[in-house]
Design a protein around this nucleic acid. Structure first.
Length: 423
RNA sequence: GUGGAUGUAGCUCAGUUAGGUCAGAGCACCUGGUUGUGGUCCAGGGGGUCGGGGGUUCGAAUCCCCUCAUCCACCCCA
C-alpha cells in the first residue's frame, strides 16, 4: 500500500512548521498591535450557513458531509459567515466596534494549482458594528502593517481599492439594466487580464451594448484619481466618492498611503460584499493572484438572522503569501532556525549520569537542552549537537569541570551549571 | 469540470530518441577514520518492483493501451 497525502493538502515537516509558526506569530503580533482580539470557530458548520449568502463560487467548492443524525455539514471554506453567526449570537452584549481576528485552517474543493491548495490557512481581520470608513481604513492599514513588518514595501505589494456601489452607479448611469449588473461586474473584474477584443466579447456576453462598453472602458482606463475628481461633481456618485476619499485620506494620515491605489476593476467574487472592496497584489505581477482581499459586507449579519450591522474585513491566505515571501527572500533566517539552547556532552564515559542530571536541571529551569543517547566520542557528540541545531554545547569533563562552547563562533570557556542557571 | 505537460532513491536529475551490464550521479541519511572538540575532508553502507495495471517482445524505465498522481492554464477564489 502506498499512501499519499490527500489531493491538494500539504504535509508540514518540522522546517515548514517553523516557517509557519513564524508567519502565525507575525500575524498575531500585528493584529494585536492594531487592537484586534483573537477568536476561533468550529471546523465544521451546518451547510446552510454557506449556502445562504456566500454565493455560488464558494458553495461549488464545499467539502460537505452528513453526520450520523443525517445533518448536512460542511468543512469551513471561509471564516466570515461563522464570525457573523458568533457576533449575531451576542450582538447585544458586545461593545462596539467589535475588532476581532483569527487564524484558521480552511478547506475548499477546488483544483489545486500554483497559489491554490485545498487546505490552507487564512488570517481574517474584521471590524463589526461600525459604519465609519475608518473601520475599512483600519483593516487595510492592518494588512499594510503586516506587509511592512515582513519587509514587503510599496514597490513589492500594492493594495488596489475599489468600490462596488461606485462602479454599480457608473454602470447604471451608462444605462445598464439592474438585472445585468452582476454579470457586468464579473466582466469588469477581467478587464486587466484580457485583451481589448476579449473584453468586448465578455462585455457583450454580459449584455452590455457597444456604446455602454465604450463608456465603461473610458471610465476604467482613465486615471482612477482623475475619475474620482470628475465623479465628485455628480450628485448621485458623491456619497460613494466621499467614502473612497475618506478611506484614502485616513490611510494617508496613518502612513499607509504609498501602499494603496484606487482601481475600479476590483469588485470581488463573493456575493455578500456591499461597499469598498480591495485586494493586495504583487506589484511585479509574477504572482498572479491576490495576496489578500476584503471589503465591506453590511448586509451579511442581517441576512444570517441578526440585526442590520455594518461590517468590514479582509482575509490573507498563507499559500500565495508564502510564494511571494519566498520569491522576495523575505523569510528571515530566525524563522527557519531551530532554537535548542544547550546540548550537553560528556567528556568522559564516567560523566553519563552527570549529563542526565544536568539536562534535567536545565530543563526544569525552563532552558531547552538535549543530549546524545549513545555514549560516543566527544567529537561525535559535538557533531550531534551541530546537527540538532544547538546554539551551545555544554561539556562535562572527567575532572568535574565544565565548559560551554558557542557552536557558531567556536568560542569556549569554563563554566558551571549553577552559573548557567543564574544567567 | 475542460485543456496541456510531467511521473526513475528523501531531494535535484541522467538514462527513454534507434528495446538487451540502464538500475545510476550529486545532495541528504547511517557507520567508521577510537579513547578531550563539531560544521571541512576521506572510506564504507542502507535506500528505488524506474507512479500503478495490462499488453507487444526471447527480453521493457525505454514501445502501445488504461489508470492514478502532480504541475501549468481555464473557471472561481485567499
Amino acid at each position: 500500500m502506498d499512501f499519499q497525502p490527500v489531493k491538494g493538502t500539504r504535509d508540514f515537516y518540522p522546517d515548514a512548521v517553523r516557517v509557519r509558526n513564524w508567519l502565525f506569530d507575525t500575524w498575531r503580533r500585528v493584529a494585536a498591535r492594531n487592537g484586534f482580539e483573537e477568536y476561533d470557530s468550529p471546523i465544521v458548520e451546518y451547510l446552510d450557513l454557506y449556502t445562504a449568502k456566500s454565493g455560488e463560487g464558494i458553495v461549488s467548492e464545499l467539502f460537505h458531509l452528513t453526520d450520523r443524525g443525517g445533518r448536512d455539514l460542511a468543512i469551513r471554506p471561509e471564516t466570515t459567515p461563522a464570525l457573523a453567526r458568533m457576533v449575531n449570537a451576542r450582538i447585544n452584549s458586545l461593545p462596539r466596534p467589535i475588532k476581532w481576528f483569527c487564524i484558521q485552517r480552511l478547506c475548499r474543493a477546488e483544483k489545486p494549482q500554483r497559489g491554490r491548495s485545498r487546505e490552507f490557512f487564512m488570517w481574517n481581520v474584521d471590524v463589526i458594528g461600525a459604519d465609519s470608513t475608518l473601520a475599512d481604513a483600519e483593516c487595510v492599514f492592518t494588512a499594510v502593517d503586516f506587509l511592512r513588518e515582513v519587509g514587503l514595501g510599496p514597490d513589492d505589494v500594492q493594495v488596489r481599492i475599489g468600490s462596488r456601489p461606485l462602479v454599480i452607479a457608473r454602470l447604471r448611469a451608462a444605462g445598464v439594466a439592474a438585472a445585468r449588473i452582476d454579470a457586468a461586474l464579473l466582466a469588469l473584474d477581467k478587464r486587466p487580464k484580457v485583451t481589448q477584443d476579449e473584453f468586448e466579447k465578455l462585455a457583450r456576453g454580459a449584455g452590455l451594448t457597444a456604446e455602454q462598453t465604450r463608456e465603461i472602458c473610458g471610465f476604467l482606463d482613465a486615471d482612477p484619481r482623475a475619475a474620482l475628481d470628475e465623479m465628485r461633481c455628480d450628485e448621485a456618485m458623491r456619497p460613494h466618492v466621499e467614502r473612497v476619499d475618506e478611506l484614502l485620506a485616513a490611510l494617508e494620515a496613518m502612513g499607509a498611503g504609498d501602499y494603496c491605489t484606487p482601481d475600479w476593476h476590483i469588485v470581488r467574487g463573493l456575493a455578500y460584499y456591499t461597499g469598498i472592496v480591495y485586494e493586495a497584489f504583487d506589484a511585479a505581477g509574477s504572482v498572479p493572484r491576490a495576496v489578500a482581499g476584503g471589503g465591506r459586507y453590511d448586509n451579511l449579519l442581517e441576512a444570517l438572522g441578526g440585526p442590520k450591522v455594518g461590517a468590514t474585513g479582509f482575509g490573507m491566505g498563507d499559500v500565495v503569501l508564502g510564494i511571494l515571501l519566498d520569491q522576495k527572500g523575505k523569510i528571515p533566517p530566525e524563522a527557519t532556525a531551530r532554537a535548542l539552547e544547550y546540548f550537553v556532552i560528556d567528556g568522559d564515559a564516567s560523566r553519563r549520569t552527570a549529563v542526565l542530571e544536568t539536562v534535567g536541571r536545565l530543563r526544569r529551569a525552563g532552558l531547552s537542552a538535549d543530549f546524545s543517547y549513545a555514549g560516543r566520542p566527544l567529537g561525535k557528540q559535538l557533531k550531534d549537537a551541530d546537527r540538532r541545531g544547538a546554539r551551545r554545547a555544554l561539556i562535562l569533563f572527567a575532572d568535574g569541570t565544565a565548559a560551554v562552547k558557542d557552536l557558531a563562533t567556536g568560542e569556549q570557556h569554563d563554566t558551571t551549571v549553577e552559573a548557567l542557571l543564574d544567567a
